[in-house]
Every structure is written in structure tokens, then in C-alpha cells.
Computed example of a mutant assay.
Amino acid sequence: MAQVAKHYHIPFWWDDRELKQLWREYNLNRKKSEIIPLFFEILLIFSSGLRTFEKIVQTLEGSDKDKEKALQLLELLILFQRQNEQKLAGERHIPNRIVSFDEPDARPIKKGKKHPDCEFGSTLQLSFNRQGFMVTTENFIGKPNDKTLWPETVRLFEQKMKGAPEYAIGDQGYRSRVNQKIPQGTPNIFLGKSSDVNEEEQDYCRKARSATEGFIAVAKKLRGFGLSLYRGIDGDRIWSLLCQIAYNLKKFLQLYNDEKISEESLMKLGLLG
């Protein structure tokens, strides 16, 4: 609200100094009995300011783009206020919970590790071929169930690679009776258990599964996938595609320098006379 007020040269309709002082006191106070009254006082100031802000937005003059941004902010603030009321009423699981005004598409994501056990943002799913090229990237708001993602990821992989793979390999998070038959026409589908494939194929599948962990670690730590520098789910999507291009170019140069690219592939790319 302060940013909109500054943009349109509107004086603040709240006591900014008082609000900052209350917020600082709230953050420094460790006694739960004293925090609750402070929180309610801050919430009352916010509620009053939001009602005034709603009236101001309806009368704004300026470019359509600026007014659209103000209306989107108003919608976000109203949702945030509603979720505050749900939280105070004792609800523990609130769908599409707002955790950041800068990143409204970010969600709390429970992690399978001790620290941190919860992180905030959007999620990303990657698929690779056996050489280590990144074939697909998918961005999601929140953390959908892996079992539901497998069929669409397989479809995208087949679309990009122009056919069904000989091996389809994932971890146990993707495991279900349905997924163990996807993709159709693939003789070896390995979803975390050695018994999924014949004994002679088990070693290959385990090594491929381990290699994928390495591909993901490189993508996250060295190729920019650890943190999106663009905002919103659309920004995350653009950032992921740019990182995918950089990742695959680097992978191609590594294999090219090691002479591990087939002559047929080099001829198709025009790199071999």
C-alpha cells in the first residue's frame, strides 16, 4: 500500500512511525503472552488501512497498467486479510496461503529433511536422458503429488524425444500401479525397486537412477536452478527455460570435447563435413 501511495503521491493514511514501532516490538518480543496483543493491534491498523485503500484504488487515475497492478495488489491484500481471519479462527491448513507479497505464487513446501523442514517458493520437475541432457522442465505452484506428475512428464518426454524410451526411471515417489505401466511400449520401467525390472537390467537402472541425482545436483548448484531471479510463476518458467538452454549447451560442450557425440548427431548439427 505504501508503494502505491508513493507512486500516486498520496499521503499515508496511517501512522507509519507507530506501525514500524509496533512491528519492531512484535519481532523482538519473545513472550507469547505479550505478542498476541501486539499482533492484534497491528492487524487492526492493517484492516483499517485496507478499507481506505480499497476506496482509493477505485478512484485512481492513470495508465491502465498501473491501475491493474493496484487492483491486483488489492485482491491479494483482501485474500491475505481473509487468511489471517482463518488462521486466528484456528484453521491449520489454508489452501493457497500467501507467504510473500513480492512472490504471491510462493507456497510453504514441507521438505523431507531436518533443517530446514519447510521452505517457501514454487517447485520444479526435471527429466533427463541417459547422456545427461535435460529434456523437460515443469514448474508448479506448491508441491503436487509426484504420482500425479509422472504421466504428464512421460508425455512431454516422448513428445520431445519423438518416441517412447527403452528405459523409464524414477524414484519411489512416482510409484503406483498405473505409473508402472507408463509409458506404454517401454520394456523397462524402474520406479525405485529392483524387482521392477529383470535381474540383468537392475544394475543399469540403479546406476541411471544415481546418475540422475548427480544431474539434478549440478543443475541446482552450478546451472542456476537453485534460485529464480525472476518473479512469479511465469518468471520462474522463463528462468527455468533459460537455465535449461545453458545446462544443455554446457553438457554438449563437455561431451563434444570428450568425443562422446556420435558422428550421426554431429552431421545433423552441421558440425561434421
Rank of each mutant, 00 (worst) to 15 (best):
M1Q: 12
L269S: 03
K220G: 06
F101R: 04
I216L: 04
E103C: 05
V178I: 12
L28F: 09
G273A: 14
T186L: 00
T212V: 12
D102H: 13
Y8T: 13
W23G: 13
L88D: 02
S122Q: 15
L124H: 05
V197S: 12
Y26A: 14
S265Q: 06
P11I: 10
Q21P: 00
I189V: 14
I42L: 15
R30P: 07
I98S: 09
L156V: 05
L126P: 02
Q86G: 07
K69F: 07
R206A: 07
G214M: 01
R177L: 06
V4R: 09
A217L: 03
V154M: 06
S122C: 15
I109F: 04
V99C: 12
K251C: 02
Y204W: 02
S176P: 07
L71H: 08
I56K: 05
W150E: 02
R237G: 09
W150N: 04
H115N: 13
T148Q: 08
W13T: 15
P183V: 11
R30I: 13
F101Q: 02
L44H: 07
I10L: 05
E18S: 13
V4S: 12
Y8M: 10
H7D: 12
K162W: 00
I109E: 03
L242K: 06
E158D: 04
D146E: 05
V178C: 06
G112I: 06
E34L: 14
I141F: 00
T59K: 14
Q184L: 03
R51S: 15
A2M: 08
P144E: 02
L50A: 11
T212F: 02
V99T: 14
I141G: 04
V218G: 00
W23I: 12
L253G: 00
F101K: 03
N27L: 09
L222Y: 07
E166G: 06
K143N: 15
E18V: 09
I169R: 06
L124M: 13
P37D: 03
P151D: 03
L28G: 13
N27D: 04
I10A: 05
L77V: 07
E263S: 14
N139E: 09
V154Y: 02
E259F: 11
E119W: 01
F225Y: 10
A208L: 14
D146W: 01
G62R: 02
T137Y: 03
R97A: 10
E263H: 13
S210T: 12
D196A: 07
M161S: 11
Q254R: 01
R231G: 04
G163K: 10
D15T: 01
P165T: 08
K147Q: 10
T136P: 00
S122Y: 11
Y26M: 13
K260L: 14
G132N: 08
P108V: 08
L38K: 10
I42S: 11
K20M: 09
E119A: 11
P151A: 06
L60N: 05
E138V: 13
L74N: 05
N139C: 14
N29I: 01
F46Q: 12
R107K: 08
A208E: 09
E119F: 05
